[in-house]
Amino acid sequence: MQVRRKQIVKRGMKWGLLLLLIMTVVLPVWAQESDSSEVTDDEVNAVAKEVYCPVCESTPLDVCETQACADWRELIREKLAQGQTKEEIFTYFADQYGDRVLATPPAEGLNLILWIWPVVAVVVGGFLFSRYMRNLRATAAAAPAVDVALPEDVPPPAKDDYVSRIEQELKKK
C-alpha cells in the first residue's frame, strides 16, 4: 500500500516536473508572442525612427532594408512588449552598438560640442561681425569728408532709393 502510494507520489512529481518544464519553456514564449502582437507597427516605428542602423550608417531603422534591421525592429517590438520605455531601448542600443546609433546622441562628453557649437558660432560670429561693423563706422568718423562727398545722388530719406531711380530712368526717356 505504502509502496503504491509512493509510486503515485513519484508519478505525480514526474508529471508535475514535466508540467513545470513545459510551463517554463512554453509559457514565456506564448506570453511574449501575445504581448508582442499587441505592440503596433506605429509604436515600433516611433522608436525605430530615432535609432540608426549600426551597419549601414545614416539610415534609420524604420526604413532600413537589411535583414539585420528587420531583426532589430523585432527586438524593439519585444522590448516594448516587455514594457520598456523609449529611453530604455535607446540606452540598450547605445550600450550595444555605441552612441552613433542614436539620432540624438546623449549630451555628455565630446557630444556636448553639438549643443555648445551653435551657440559659440552665433556669439563669437556676432561679436566679430559687430566689431567689424563698428570699425567700418569708425572709419566714417575719422574721415567725414567721404561721408559728405558720397551721397550726392542719394534721395531724401523718406523715399525708396530704388523708386527714385526708376523715376530718373523714366525722366530720361
Binding site: E50, Y52, E57, S58, P60, G98, D99, R100, V101, L102, A103, T104, P105, G109, L110, N111, I113, L114
Partner: peptide, 19 residues
C-alpha cells in the same frame, strides 16, 4: 562630427536630424 569624434574618442559619432 563622425571624423572629429573618432579623432578624439576613437569612437565614430553620429549627428541625426533632430540635432
Amino acid at each position: 562630427y563622425p571624423i572629429i569624434s573618432e579623432l578624439f574618442t576613437g569612437e565614430r559619432g553620429f549627428v541625426g536630424p533632430p540635432v
